[in-house]
Each structure stands twice: as structure tokens, then as C-alpha cells.
Design a binder for these strands. Structure first.
Ligand code: NAD
Ligand code: NAD
Lengths: 213, 213
DNA sequence: CTTGGGTTGTGAATCTATTCACAAGCGGGC
DNA sequence: GCCCGCTTGTGAATAGATTCACAACCCAAG
């Protein structure tokens, strides 16, 4: 047994997620075992890194053979918390919200969108699949009633910080934020920011540094 | 003068992007100077980190006073490569592509979407604002003709790697990839992956580790 | 002109992550 | 039963990023 709970770095968890995807591709192609080298190749990292990452959580492989694909998928799902359903709310029924709502990944991985909110009277009352868009005024009561655990913010930047405070006060423990606004929340809340500006600026920075030579 | 070009870490560049956004908020509120502490508070980091990051590129502040807001905005824009226009192509005119196309950030920051591609005959020929959706068969000729520098992949995972190869062969130097597929490209190509699964799994991992106590 | 509160810029120290190297283990062949 | 090729698991070494501490500096006030 390796260690019950020392601190795990974010990059390790991101790589676990990549290993899981690689293993699923391997499973689909019929492979029963996968070496750290094979996983590294598919996930875009190195073999020692794969072994180190996995060894943080246990001993999953067989020396001389590699890692058994199907059992390791199960282990990674357990580690990542994917063996249960998560109850998710979407705040902001705009373009990004709509793209997310139709994204099949959510269903497949057990992230269930159980509530959608907006403040536009034209949108409130519409149904997206089985879910009726509720007015943002009903936020607290619906979040409590639906036992929402994760909130996804796809509203404009201006209302985002106040809405984040509200969902946290209503008991939501994790937020995925697409709005370009910084959220200041108590440390027990898990926040993850997706910032398109940053991603593009990373590209323009790299191009600017490499092109002029 | 600090250093012409040693290796800059990705996290430094991401923070520069955050500082730029913070400075623009400060400018809007009329501030003329900003201390490293103030920038750190807004960008969610620490004051020494801000100073270290900026000192990588030069000496922008005045001791005792802080950093001059407007000049530093200009310097950061120059460092990040935002003082010129970038010619961008969108591959995949689906939901994510549509959300990106309407996102005002692109215009504001000089990322000009000059070409849109799809392989769905229903979509080819439609116009999104000024841009006609082209068939993916025309990829190479249009990319060359429009001198595209950055490609954004919003196609399904299956065709993504092959399309990435094609845009690189057509001279595109940077790719922002939304498809959950690993792209293997020559090292001079800048690739940035946006992976929603990873972002959500990071949340479920953190919730799983914190809740059961 | 000098003092003092405030802030930057940066080498050094610390902390964290990745890479390396290799002993330990597995199974197949003979 | 015993080698041999292959692969894991992991402590140690290296590399990298962040934090610290403080000299250098700026301006305003007296
Ligand atoms: N479009 C993109 O590609 C893109 C990319 C990255 C980030 N973002 C960010 O994601 C967010 C959403 O973008 P979008 O393109 O979907 O915008 P959008 O305008 O299409 O959707 C925003 C939705 O939020 C609703 N809304 C506004 N204020 C609200 C409030 N106080 N309470 C509840 N709902 C409210 C609006 O009615 C609208 O339906 C924005 O913050 C944007 O900056 C967008
Ligand atoms: N919807 C989301 O919220 C979301 C989130 C994260 C990632 N993604 C990923 O982004 C990508 C796009 O998602 P989407 O929801 O916009 O899907 P979508 O089906 O709405 O759009 C995909 C578009 O790509 C086009 N296309 C398919 N094959 C093509 C090819 N060979 N050449 C050119 N065009 C082709 C389709 O005609 C369609 O218009 C997918 O890879 C998806 O996994 C989606």
C-alpha cells in the first residue's frame, strides 16, 4: 500500500484523466494489458511519469506484463470519483451553456445536469430536453431541492462573482467557471476556471517568440 | 535589462494574461498606478510572484510607487503578441464553433476569424456574419490564400488528428484543440488542448477526496 | 537636506515536480 | 527448475517553480 492521503498535485490528476481516456481507447481496440510506455505514448507523457502517478494511489500493474486495462479503468474511475453520479447545475442558458448541455460526455461520465438557470424572461420556462430553465431568483430553493453539488457558470463576467457566492452559500462545493471573472470563495470550495483568453494568448505569445527568427 | 530570451514557463504566461485583465479593470476604474500586491490580489497570486514574473521581461515599475497601469498594459500586450492581428480559422461549424464565433473577445483582442470549415453539406455555404462556411476539401487552398496562422479545432475527436496534420502542412503554426483527441505534431507547432472532461474530473476528484470526512 | 513609509527588482533558499536508475518480480521457453 | 527478456515500483538525483529577504530606490513632508 503506497499512501492513504498525501497531497496530490493538480497535474497528476489531469494526467490520470488522460490515462483513463487512453485506457478506454485501448479497451475498445481489444487490448488486455498496457505498459507504462504505451500509456505514456498515448497520453503524451513519459513512462516513469505514468508509473510514478499510478504508484501514488496503489500498485496496479504486474511486473513483466504491464497494467491490466479493464481493472485499471475501474481503479482510475474510483480515484477520480466517477463511480457515482454528480448533480450539476448550469447557470446561464446562452451559447456556451447550450453547447455544454448537448455534450454527451456529461451523461456518459455521470455528470447529470439537474437544473438550468437564466434571468432572461424569454428563456425562463423553455425546456432543454427534460430540464426546464428556471429563473435565477429560484436559485437557492432549486439547488437545495435538487441537492446540486457542482455548478457550471456560463453567465457574463459581471454577475459571475455574486452568483458564485450564492451557489456556495446554497451548499455547492465545486464550481467550473467559464466567465472571465475572478471568484473569491472560501478555501473549501473547489474552483476551476476555463479561460479562453488565456489559451489563445498562450498561442500568440509562443508564435511571437518563435516566428521572428 | 533583465534577459533577452531564456525559457519562459507556461504558468508565467498564463499569469501575464491574468495581470493584463486585472490592469484593464484597474484602468477602467481610473487607477494610474498599481502595486504588485494589488495586482496579486486581483489575479489570485502573490506579490513576489507578480514582481518575479514581470522582472523576467524587464523593469516596468517604480520603486515606492508601483507599476504605471497604462504603460504596463502596453508592455504586456507587446509581450503576449497582442499588438498585431492574428488570422484564425475555425474547423467545425457546430455548437462550440458557433459559441466561439460570436464571442466578442476575438475581435477585441485582434484574433480575426477569417475562415470557417465544415464537411456537412447543410452547413457549407451558410454565412456567419461576413464569413462563408467553406467545405473542408478547400482547407489547404483557403488557409494559404487567407494566410491563416492559428487553427481552432471544434470538430469531433475522430477527424481531429488528421485535420491537425493537414493544417500544419498548410503552414499553420498554432492550434487550439477542443476535440478530446491527442494530436501528435512536429515540435515547432504550438498546441493547446482544452479538455472539458479533465476540468470536470478535477472537480469530482477534489470533491471525492474532501467530502468523505 | 534628511528622514520615513512604501515599493520594486532579484539572488538565495525552499519547496515541488519530474526524471533516472535499478532491484524486484513475472511468465514463457527449454 | 532455471534462465532470460521484459516491466513495475520506488528511493535518489535532478530540474524547475515559488517564496523569501533585503538592498536599492522613490517621493513627500518637515
Ligand atoms: N462564447 C464563447 O465562446 C465563450 C468562450 C469562453 C468564455 N465565454 C464566457 O462564457 C460566458 C457565457 O458566454 P455565452 O457566449 O454563452 O454568452 P450568452 O450571452 O450567449 O449567454 C449568457 C447567458 O447568461 C444569461 N444571464 C445573464 N445574466 C444573468 C444572470 N444575472 N443570471 C442568470 N443568467 C444570466 C443570459 O440571459 C444568457 O442567456 C461569458 O462569461 C463569456 O465571457 C464564452
Ligand atoms: N459541446 C461541448 O460543450 C463541448 C465541450 C468540450 C469539447 N467539445 C468537443 O468539441 C468538438 C465539437 O463539439 P460540438 O458540440 O460543437 O459538436 P457538433 O457536432 O455540434 O459540431 C461538430 C461540427 O464538426 C463538423 N465536422 C464533423 N466532421 C468533420 C470533418 N471531418 N471536417 C470538417 N467538419 C467536420 C460537423 O459537421 C459539425 O458541424 C467535439 O470534439 C467535442 O467533443 C464539445
Amino acid at each position: 500500500m503506497p499512501s492513504p492521503d498525501r497531497k496530490i498535485s493538480e497535474s497528476t490528476v489531469r494526467r490520470l484523466s488522460a490515462y483513463l481516456r487512453s485506457l478506454e481507447a485501448l479497451e475498445a481496440s481489444g487490448a488486455e494489458m498496457a505498459s507504462s510506455g504505451e500509456l505514456a505514448r498515448r497520453a503524451g507523457t513519459t513512462a516513469p511519469q505514468v508509473r510514478k502517478d499510478l504508484s501514488t494511489f496503489g500498485s496496479f500493474g504486474k511486473r513483466g506484463l504491464g497494467y491490466p486495462v479493464v481493472p485499471l479503468i475501474g481503479s482510475l474511475e474510483a480515484i477520480l470519483g466517477l463511480t457515482r453520479e454528480w448533480r450539476v447545475a448550469l447557470l446561464g442558458a446562452g451559447r456556451v451553456g447550450a453547447a455544454l448541455h448537448t455534450y454527451p460526455f456529461f451523461r456518459e461520465r455521470g455528470f447529470r445536469i439537474v437544473a438550468i438557470f437564466d434571468n432572461d424572461p424569454e428563456k425562463v420556462g423553455l425546456r432543454w430536453d427534460d430540464t426546464t430553465i428556471r429563473h435565477i431568483d429560484e436559485l437557492e430553493s432549486v439547488l437545495a431541492g435538487e441537492a446540486v453539488e457542482i455548478a457550471i457558470l456560463t453567465v457574463p463576467a459581471a454577475p459571475a462573482p455574486a452568483l458564485a457566492d450564492r451557489v456556495v452559500r446554497a451548499g455547492v462545493g465545486a464550481i467550473l467557471n467559464f466567465a472571465p471573472a475572478r471568484l473569491e470563495l472560501p478555501p473549501h470550495v473547489v474552483v476551476n476556471e476555463v479561460n479562453l483568453a488565456m489559451e489563445l494568448e498562450l498561442l500568440s505569445f509562443a508564435l511571437t517568440r518563435s516566428e521572428p527568427r
